[in-house]
Amino acid sequence: MEVRTIKVFTTVDNINLHTQVVDMSMTYGQQFGPTYLDGADVTKIKPHNSHEGKTFYVLPNDDTLRVEAFEYYHTTDPSFLGRYMSALNHTKKWKYPQVNGLTSIKWADNNCYLATALLTLQQIELKFNPPALQDAYYRARAGEAANFCALILAYCNKTVGELGDVRETMSYLFQHANLDSCKRVLNVVCKTCGQQQTTLKGVEAVMYMGTLSYEQFKKGVQIPCTCGKQATKYLVQQESPFVMMSAPPAQYELKHGTFTCASEYTGNYQCGHYKHITSKETLYCIDGALLTKSSEYKGPITDVFYKENSYTTTIK
């Protein structure tokens, strides 16, 4: 009895394709271990004539594949690729409408935090270190965002349907971005203890939790000093293409032309909904596939993004 075979390709990165001759009487799992086709788990399936010449994702289970996976995804987590594939199996079914010149995501599976993050990423200057993220990001900007969303979920250790947080998501993504040249110098002034300067680099240099107003941050924000008295913390120097200011959701007025974009969060910790506000020729609110415009805006804002380049204080 002759062994019926077909020729397929296996890959971990969709760049390096490895030619395989597979036995049609055995499952993919018996031949390769966990195997995925377009995100779908085909591990328990036997090869079919229609699979001839198709590319299958496999887990990096030998040295060659491990090197290829690390170079593309910059992670050695053995569960990463499987999590990416199972997320992709959902995100490829989502709709990605162009809204006001940006790629958004039609609401499904509690994905409003991903839509808000995706919209924000198209408006701030950011370059990702893992080629996987950078490639998928370019495709997302062009309207094909399924891979990018699935990668975000995998890097953030999230599953489809789980509630997510924009600030946490951005923080994970910033860790995989090139923020080497970003720098922030802060000064804390206390009447009792004097003053202390701190220099922050990388992710810490672009994120701040405690106030939404970048102007206020430049002037000074009140913080408790270690001595128990009130101290003032203010920005001395900022070198970065953008800054992200966050605070627990509270009524906040966004003035046209003073910011790049913002995240609105309605609801409580267990259950809520994100919308995205962007400042173009007027203010726009993007909620999944829905767009509304207004000249002014007041609502429960939790993150505001500002364009920056270089700032030095005039406070002496």
Rank of each mutant, 00 (worst) to 15 (best):
R4T: 12
Q195W: 08
G194S: 05
D77F: 03
Q196V: 11
L153G: 04
Q20S: 15
L163K: 09
G210N: 01
P97N: 06
I45A: 13
R141N: 13
Y311V: 07
W107V: 03
Y208S: 08
E239R: 12
V221W: 07
T35Y: 05
P248N: 06
D38R: 11
F80I: 04
E71G: 14
I124T: 03
F70E: 09
C225L: 01
N49C: 14
T199W: 06
M24K: 09
L212P: 02
T43V: 08
T192W: 11
V99N: 06
A262R: 00
I15C: 11
N157R: 11
I45L: 11
Y311C: 09
G29M: 12
I15Q: 09
L81A: 07
E52Y: 11
Q222K: 15
I277L: 06
Q251L: 15
E2F: 10
Q122S: 03
K44Y: 15
E308P: 09
L254W: 02
V304H: 00
S181I: 09
C193F: 01
V188D: 05
G267K: 05
N187G: 10
D77G: 04
L254M: 03
L173G: 01
I45V: 14
D303K: 00
T226E: 14
T19H: 09
T302I: 00
V99T: 07
K95G: 12
G272D: 00
G39F: 12
N100Q: 10
L114I: 07
D23V: 14
F259A: 01
P248Q: 09
D63N: 12
G257V: 02
V185P: 01
A136V: 02
S104F: 05
T192L: 12
N129F: 06
G194C: 03
H90C: 14
G267F: 05
F217D: 01
L37Q: 13
R83I: 05
K127Q: 11
L290R: 09
T75H: 08
G267Q: 06
V221H: 08
S79P: 06
Y297A: 03
L17E: 12
S181C: 15
N16H: 14
Q30D: 11
A150P: 02
A289M: 13
M170F: 09
C225I: 00
L114T: 03
C156I: 11
L235N: 01
F70S: 15
T313R: 14
G29C: 15
E264D: 06
N178K: 15
V236M: 14
L200W: 06
K44L: 10
N49Y: 11
R66F: 14
Q251S: 13
E264L: 06
S263T: 07
G82N: 08
A87R: 04
A145N: 04
E162P: 05
T103V: 08
Y172I: 15
E296N: 09
K93Q: 10
T10F: 08
R66H: 13
V160I: 09
K307Q: 10
N14R: 08
C227L: 01
Y36M: 06
E52T: 14
F128N: 02
D41A: 14
T312M: 14
Y73R: 02
A250M: 15
A250Q: 13
T35H: 06
K280F: 12
T116I: 05
K233E: 14
L163P: 07
V21K: 14
G53T: 09
Y73F: 15
M26F: 14
G164E: 00
A69H: 11
F80R: 03
D62Y: 08
Q196H: 10
A145M: 04
S246R: 01
V243C: 06
Y113I: 04
N100E: 09
F217C: 05
L283M: 08
T35R: 05
S263Y: 00
T10W: 08
A250F: 07
L153N: 01
D180P: 02
D165W: 00
D63F: 09
K93E: 11
L153V: 09
N110V: 03
F148W: 03
T278I: 07
M207T: 12
Q251A: 14
L37I: 14
T55Q: 08
L121A: 08
T103E: 02
L200D: 12
Y113N: 02
A150H: 00
V243K: 00
V206Y: 01
V8E: 05
Q122E: 04
T282M: 15
Q20V: 14
Q20M: 15
N14I: 10
L88M: 10
K275W: 02
L151I: 05
